[in-house]
């Protein structure tokens, strides 16, 4: 209906609109406040932190604290820990994607004895988180001389039942005729895999990459067990190592700067991959 009732509705919707926005903004503030505090703490002196009241606005020591953390850190330079974390997270994310793509390909496109059995075995491992099998895994890693190495950080975590399962589900929606067309066109199985299946899975791969990168980045228990050399520490576990044992004083600005630095890479990954990521979760391209 035109006329007054129409504008009335707009006004009413306008009010609701603003109200819900106010609610959302409040929520964001509440969630962001601790992060803001951490950032503030990373830009002031330790003195200012330990003396109440705690400052709420950034100080002037940003450059000093961050360069201090990156170059020397407490046990190991944070730059080194960031590198270790990046290698581990990338290794886990990319490795998981590659391995699950291949195993899903095998399960969906090849008939071999025990195919179902293998699928269900993989599926079963979904129910076993790292923590459950951590002792035997440690034993194996130690025997293979993988302690304090990137291989030790990556390989024990590289198999992924979840990703295998997801790719299997995706491959099963790819029409059989596509595989047949490729066969008639002369593509042998691995050619079909690389030329057709992998490009078709790219949005799924992007979504998984984001999730797996964060999973790898946030690993805590495993790196804690397998690395003893500070130069092999990852940043997430490294933060914990920065706390002094006993009565030593904690260097809060450096620890907070490290925390902020530890948060950045996952944020960057999410933001840069956002478009692909959402597309991968929402629709499949067929």
């Amino acid at each position: 209906m035109p006329g007054p009732s129409h504008t009335g509705m707009v006004e009413k919707r306008g009010a609701g609109h603003w109200l819900s926005h106010a609610g959302l903004i409040l929520g964001v503030l509440i969630i962001a406040f601790p992060i803001w505090l951490a950032f503030v703490a990373s830009t002031v002196t330790n003195q200012e932190i330990v003396q109440p009241p705690m400052p709420l606005w950034p100080g002037d020591r940003f450059y000093e604290n961050y360069s201090n953390a990156l170059v020397s850190g407490i046990n190991a330079p944070v730059a080194r820990m960031l590198m270790n974390s990046a290698v581990m997270a990338l290794g886990i994310a990319l490795g998981k994607i590659l391995i699950s793509l291949l195993s899903a390909f095998a399960i969906v496109y090849f008939r071999f004895p025990g195919r179902r059995l293998f699928f269900w075995l993989i599926f079963l491992t979904l129910m076993l988180p790292v923590e459950v099998r951590i002792v035997p895994t440690y034993e194996v890693a130690a025997n293979l001389n993988l302690l304090n190495s990137y291989s030790g950080l990556i390989f024990p975590l590289i198999a992924s039942a979840t990703a295998t399962f997801l790719f299997r589900q995706f491959f099963m929606t790819v029409p059989d005729e596509l595989a047949e067309a490729a066969r008639v066109d002369g593509a042998r199985p691995m050619r079909f895999f690389w030329d057709i299946l992998v490009p078709m899975s790219r949005t799924n791969m992007a979504a998984l990459f984001v999730i797996l990168f964060i999973y790898g980045w946030n690993q805590y228990l495993w790196p804690l067990l397998i690395t003893t050399d500070p130069s092999m520490n990852t940043i997430v576990m490294g933060i914990k190592q920065m706390f002094p044992s006993g009565d030593d004083y904690a260097d809060w600005p450096v620890i907070m700067a490290t925390s902020i630095l530890a948060m950045l890479p996952p944020v960057i990954v999410v933001i840069t991959m956002q478009k692909l990521f959402i597309r991968g979760l929402v629709d499949t391209e067929k």
Binding site: E177, E180, A181, A182, D195, M200, R202
Partner: peptide, 20 residues
């Protein structure tokens, strides 16, 4: 003989074009 070595071309009902 494998399909690729038979030197035939096939047109499918749903076309089976490579979507990407």
């Amino acid at each position: 003989t494998e399909p690729m070595d038979r030197d035939i071309a096939m047109v499918f009902q749903n076309y089976a074009l490579y979507p990407h």
